[in-house]
Every structure is written in structure tokens, then in C-alpha cells.
């Protein structure tokens, strides 16, 4: 009987690299037999590292190369068949399951894909600009995660967002561009818009700068519309709003217009890595209007505190406003 300590990643890794001693190899085989779920998972993981289908037939490939060489001014090489190096990826762990697997994309399940979904994440204080193959440019805010569907660009263009991002969508009427944020979708209809959905607060906000966005639960939004869906599902749409504050973060300037304090605190955590607690009744519903553009952390918090009529005390990267 084996304890879970024996399921050593170090041992498995060396096994995958072909570096185990005969005794260790036998041990790994025994472990796989005793833990078929682990064997299956490892097999699938390794098999899907480099999904590619079958390589072109080497004989045919050589014939083509030989012709290309012959076209160059050298004498053609003599042809003689010799054994080839066996393929190493015929790994013995749970390949049958891996071969006919379906891959979960965000929208549909498809068999053996030629691409995988791409996940981009930003850490605290880190912004990134992602340019997609169709020309769409996405500015990703700190502390965010953006997933591009494996089938992006084929018949549709789907991305999933946990965080905040500004989308300048390249127009392609044949392939709708949709942002999935939690249970909300915001579909581009020729637009530039910002979507904010951090799973830690459950709310989703879409602000449209140009064009139109079809948002689930809110309908068609136009430039200047800001739709906010609270965590409990209530939807509110503001028309003719100032969307400048919604996108100024894309240039590194945090600006707020009637924004709930909870959102500001979240941004301070993601942009500066600081925790701000507010000791005041119902503080998270308080709204803040102001700009923290370019301010260093302490000054930003000081400004926030002053606006709320509070004082800030610090302990390391924690600030308390009271």
C-alpha cells in the first residue's frame, strides 16, 4: 500500500524525462497502476502539451526536400532508406483517453483542437496591451485575467475576463466579438468599450466609448452609456455619462467619478499592492469622485482620506482611514 507521499512530482518528472533508474521506473509503473486517476491526468497533461496531429510522412517529406536540393546547383543525393529515430511521445500513460478528448473552450466543446485557449494575467501594478490576430487591441488592467478562446477568429471571437480591460475591437461583421464576464456577455457591435468584472466583488460594469455594445440583461448600449450590474443581479444603465474616468486607467491614471469606495479600494490593492480599510459606517457604499492620477501610494491614500474627511494611519502596506 502506498501513501500519497510516494506520488512524488520529482519522481514523475524524471520518469517523463526518461531519467529514472530501472527500479524507479518499476516503482512509477506500480504507482500508476495503483492510482489510475493520477496516471490519466498526467497522461492527458503531457499529451496535450504539444498537440499537433501526425507529422507528414518522412519518405514523402524527404522526396520534396530532395527535389528542392536538386533545384540548387548541386548533384542530387543518393537515396537509401535507413531506420529512423522512434518517436518519444508515444508515452505509455493513458493515451487512449487523451486521443479522443474534448477540450473545453468557453462556448463549445470541440474535439482535438489545433490551438489551446490563451490565458493572459497581470499581477499587481502591471498593465499589458494585448493585440489579437484580428487587430483588436485590449488594454488589461492590473490584477486581471483575460482568456482568449481556442477557436478565436474562426466563426466568432470570444474572450473571458476576470478583471478590467479596455477593448478596441477590430470590426468584423462576420465574426462577433464577445466578452464573457461572469455570467454577463458584452458583445461588440463596432466599438470601443471597457468591461470591469473582478470576481471578488461580483459586480460587472460596461462603459461604451464608441459604437454600440449588446450587453446581456441591459440590451444595446451606446457611446456614453455605463451599465452596472450589481452582485445581486440588479442592472442600472446611465446614459450620456462621463466615460473618460472609466478609461483613464489605460494611460496609468486612476480617475473616479461617483465611484463606489469598494471599487477604489480594489484598485488601490491591484495597482499599488496596498490594503486600505475604512472605519466608517456603510463605507463601501460611499462614492468617490476624484483623480489619483500619477500619485504615489501614500499621496493617493492621503487624497482619498482628505476627500472623505478622514485621516490615514499606516502599517507597512496597510492603511486605515478613520
Amino acid at each position: 500500500m502506498s501513501s500519497s507521499d510516494e506520488l512524488s512530482p520529482e519522481l514523475f518528472e524524471r520518469y517523463l524525462a526518461g531519467e529514472t533508474t530501472p527500479r524507479e521506473t518499476a516503482q512509477v509503473r506500480r504507482l500508476f497502476a495503483e492510482h489510475p486517476d493520477v496516471a490519466d491526468a498526467l497522461g492527458a497533461y503531457v499529451a496535450r502539451l504539444d498537440p499537433s496531429g501526425e507529422p507528414p510522412d518522412t519518405d514523402a517529406s524527404w522526396a520534396v526536400l530532395r527535389d528542392r536540393l536538386a533545384a540548387a546547383p548541386r548533384r542530387p543525393p543518393v537515396v537509401r532508406r535507413l531506420p529512423t529515430r522512434p518517436l518519444r511521445w508515444a508515452l505509455p500513460i493513458a493515451l487512449a483517453a487523451a486521443a479522443c478528448l474534448t477540450v473545453a473552450t468557453m462556448v463549445t466543446r470541440r474535439p482535438t483542437p489545433t490551438a489551446l485557449p490563451r490565458v493572459y494575467t497581470t499581477t499587481v501594478g502591471q498593465r499589458a496591451t494585448l493585440t489579437l490576430a484580428d487587430g483588436t487591441a485590449i488594454t488589461i488592467a492590473p490584477g486581471s485575467r483575460l482568456e482568449v478562446a481556442a477557436d478565436f477568429g474562426r466563426e466568432r471571437r470570444d474572450v473571458r475576463l476576470d478583471g478590467e480591460a479596455y477593448f478596441a475591437v477590430a470590426h468584423d461583421a462576420a465574426r462577433p466579438f464577445t466578452v464573457f464576464a461572469g455570467t454577463v456577455t458584452a458583445r461588440d457591435v463596432g466599438t470601443a468599450y471597457v468591461v470591469r468584472h473582478y470576481t471578488d466583488d461580483g459586480a460587472v460594469r460596461v462603459a461604451v466609448r464608441e459604437g454600440r455594445v449588446d450587453m446581456s440583461g441591459a440590451g444595446l448600449l451606446r457611446a456614453g452609456d455605463i451599465a452596472s450590474r450589481s452582485a445581486d443581479g440588479a442592472m442600472r444603465v446611465e446614459h450620456g455619462a462621463d466615460t473618460d474616468a472609466m478609461v483613464s486607467w489605460t494611460t496609468g491614471r486612476l480617475a473616479y467619478h461617483d465611484t463606489p469606495l469598494a471599487d477604489v479600494r480594489g484598485d488601490l490593492r491591484r495597482w499599488y499592492g496596498i490594503d486600505v480599510a475604512v472605519r466608517r459606517a456603510a463605507s463601501d457604499t460611499v462614492r468617490f469622485t476624484g483623480s489619483l492620477a500619477g500619485l504615489p501610494a501614500h499621496d493617493a491614500v492621503a487624497l482619498l482620506a482628505a476627500t472623505l474627511g478622514l485621516k490615514a494611519t499606516w502599517q507597512g502596506s496597510h492603511a486605515v482611514l478613520r
Binding site: 521506473t25 496516471a39 505509455p92 500513460i93
Partner: peptide
């Protein structure tokens, strides 16, 4: 699971 004792060979 398609793995059983004896089904797993070495590299």
C-alpha cells in the same frame, strides 16, 4: 481510466 496494472509500460 484506461490504465490498469500491466497497461503502463516504460518510456
Amino acid at each position: 481510466s484506461t490504465v490498469g496494472p500491466g497497461a503502463v509500460a516504460g518510456p
